[in-house]
Amino acid sequence: MRNACNEVSVQVVAQVALLSDDRSDVDAGASRADGAMDRYACGDEAAFVDLYDELAPRLHRFALRWTRSRSAAEDAVQQTFLQIHAARHRFVRGGAVTPWAYAIIRRLLLDLGRRGAREELRHDLRDAEEPTTAPSPDEALHRRRVEAEAQRDLAFLPPAWREAFELVKFEGLSVAETAEVLGITRGMVKIRTFRATAALRKAMARRLRDPSERMTRSDPGAPPPGETREKGVPT
């Protein structure tokens, strides 16, 4: 029993690693971004380029994961930087720019209303500059299947849990930063992330027990079996 649990945990971790394999050194990047924003607010025009270089890849990846549309993601990133630029004179001394930027782009994406229209990950979104060290067909098939299962498990999560989980696990934000982005308390972030992780682990365990289930679960809007909801809101 204990071995089975460990196996499940390892697979969940592997799924998360697969989904966030291009994650950078986010902590150092955040402090560099904060410094660049501070310099930009103080009048150093060139610092905006540094700020863009630090934040744009992360914001773009976040928007792309959210919208599944390259043009929408680029529009959201551009708008976010314009909002940051417009608030330059109001930027608080020593403030953190990363949670603020994520809060802005999240709001823009919510306003765009694209959250409800998630499309399946299209393979043409792959970066043309990605290294093409082609794995064997079996490996590629396995990787794609695990990715698809991980994406589907994520899609099953309630939006509030998924947002907290994605920001902490994929974007590498701290609990405090995630709390700022979402406008909730740190304790609530911990609870949501924990519940999301537990739900993913549970989904994985269920699939391992019953491999045929992956063929039957096709409605990403429906709650997974056993999950409790009150008036449509996850508890």
């Binding site: 291009d22 863009y52 890849p57 551009q78 314009l82 630029h85 792959r126 970066d127």
Partner: peptide, 22 residues
């Protein structure tokens, strides 16, 4: 996936056209 270089140029050009005080 990295954002395209054209996006960076577009952003920088737009903020150059809309100066905001320090």
């Amino acid at each position: 996936m990295m954002p395209p270089e054209s996006l960076k140029l577009r952003v920088l050009e737009t903020i150059r056209q809309r100066p905001v005080p320090r």
